[in-house]
């Protein structure tokens, strides 16, 4: 039982965030963008749990409504990176020496730069916006996943069961789809749960710099950026979106580690 409690706690923590992302109206019936200048910069209290911002918008409502874009950026970027990295990694491992060299050298170059910097460059080329942000983070994260899949696919390709399957006279395509791919992506999926947290931080970071979701739509990173100007007078503007990011990332990380533990203990 003791082994399961981190898993349990992190799941419990993530439930409200999931609800907030799926149906924010359930947690707060106020509008996240309705301006109410009279009640600007109110501290947390019974009426406004997290206080209000400089335009009098309820901060709790904005944090709740900010869950969806923030989590979507993290999840979307991770999903895109996992798919692209998976395919490129497989191509590098199984596609012959030339494919391996091309994919891996490009990956080396991208990995030698900080991921956030790579994402920044991509945004500089593509322009700001939520879709471009997702794309930029995905590109920055792809090489890491591609490496893992390549290494894993090389191991699986040399494994006894792939040789046995080859010995049965199976076609190469069947071999890849039936045996190599499913066994090579296992570690990738675990890595993705941990990578999701990193992608979320990257998304918030770029949002903070103003490259992601454009105001007035709420997004945790962008909210942090807006709160920065009032940090001395209104601490709540920075603390609550920041706490939302921190708690989500920690919970997802714990979840990922627990999943990795299970994975190492025996494949499902």
């Amino acid at each position: 039982m003791r082994r399961y409690w981190p898993l349990l706690v992190s799941c419990l923590v993530l439930v409200p965030f999931g609800v907030a992302a799926a149906v924010p109206e359930l947690l707060s019936d106020a509008s996240p963008i309705a301006i109410d200048p009279v009640n600007a910069l109110l501290p947390p209290g019974t009426r406004h749990w997290f206080g209000t911002d400089q335009l009098g918008r309820d901060l709790f409502t904005r944090v709740v409504h900010g869950a969806r874009p923030s989590l979507l950026i993290g999840a979307g970027a991770t999903a895109a990176a996992v798919v692209a990295g998976g395919l490129l990694g497989l191509a590098a491992a199984l596609g012959g020496r030339a494919a391996d060299q091309v994919v891996m050298r490009v990956a080396d170059v991208l990995m030698s730069l900080p991921q956030l910097l790579v994402a920044l460059v991509v945004i500089a080329v593509l322009g700001a916006g939520t879709t471009n942000l997702v794309l930029a983070i995905a590109i920055a994260f792809t090489p890491g996943y591609a490496r893992v899949v390549r290494a894993e696919a090389l191991v699986v390709r040399g494994s006894g069961y792939v040789e046995s399957a080859k010995g049965l006279g199976l076609r190469r395509s069947v071999l890849i789809v039936r045996h190599i791919l499913p066994n090579a992506v296992g570690p990738l999926l675990v890595l993705a749960t941990v990578g999701f947290g990193t992608a979320l931080i990257a998304g918030s970071g770029l949002g903070f710099l103003g490259f992601g979701t454009q105001p007035p739509a709420p997004e945790w990173g962008a909210m942090l950026a807006e709160g920065r100007d009032f940090l001395e007078t209104a601490w709540w503007l920075g603390v609550f979106p920041g706490a939302a990011i921190t708690v989500t990332v920690i919970a997802v990380n714990v979840l990922g580690r627990a999943a990795r533990g299970r994975f190492a203990g025996g494949k499902p």
Binding site: S159, G160, Y161, E163, S164, A165, K166, G167, L168, G169, R178, H179, P182, N183, K267, P268
Partner: peptide, 18 residues
């Protein structure tokens, strides 16, 4: 290939773990 088959020392590694 199906006319010549193998049995290895470590059978477990010759089975797809899934």
């Amino acid at each position: 290939r199906r006319t010549i088959q193998a049995v290895h020392q470590d059978p477990l590694s010759s089975f797809d773990p899934r």
